[in-house]
Design a protein around this nucleic acid. Structure first.
Lengths: 117, 117
DNA sequence: CGGTATCCGATATGATACTG
DNA sequence: CAGTATCATATCGGATACCG
């Protein structure tokens, strides 16, 4: 089912799992995806929700997510120009995987607590 | 089910999904996990399987995986000292998640191909 | 409003040599 | 065998200021 190790030994970034992980590794990406899972938002909303992140960094992370086909960027033609961001179909397919990651993490931090006791 | 955004807005690394992703982001970690999913291996085996990675980097990544409770380090007391690495229980629980990531990635690279056509 | 431009420090990865 | 030490480079994230 999964390809043999030798295929990736020369270039580990070619491993599909690594590529998938790379697609949402970035300091603000998981929380951006979490935000967009609930609503389509315009840029200023995202900035306000994440005041600790600079516009530059948010722009970068959004661009990367867009280039990876995970979010969709939609500028409007209003008087007050706005740019909306939302999850693509591919982005929405990430939701159950993120939920598994969430559960796995909760589980193991639980175990750490009981180990320490 | 999942915590609200405000909980992580100040420190995005506290988001469980980000923490989970962090646990296996590292250039060689996915492929190391893939290797160990099949066998318990000693350090030299891992080095031989991944000749492009320096011992220093492999040691670092293995130590991080160990500190995260994902792999188990087992030194032996033989004449020729060896150190075995294997997946912990928590590490094995990652397998189905990695499979989902694998499928998700294959899916979307498929779509890219057909989009380009 | 939705960005860019510039500069900077921190972290990640790597090449190489050495050690018990 | 299984590392550690040292040094170099690259990418990432951030502060700040400016722009159409």
């Amino acid at each position: 089912m999964i390809d043999p190790v030798e295929l990736y030994a020369d270039d580990p970034t070619s491993c599909p799992v690594a590529a998938a992980v790379g697609a949402f590794s970035g300091k603000w990406k998981p929380i951006i995806l979490h935000l967009l899972a609930q609503d389509e938002l315009h840029f200023a909303n995202i900035c306000r929700a994440l005041p600790k992140a600079s516009k530059k960094v948010l722009t970068e992370q959004l661009r990367e997510l867009e280039n990876d086909g995970i979010v969709v960027r939609r500028p409007t033609n209003e008087n007050r120009p706005r740019v909306f961001y939302s999850l693509s179909r591919t982005g929405k397919e990430l939701a159950p995987i993120m939920l598994s990651l969430y559960k796995w993490q909760k589980d193991r931090s639980q175990k750490e607590m009981s180990d320490a006791a």
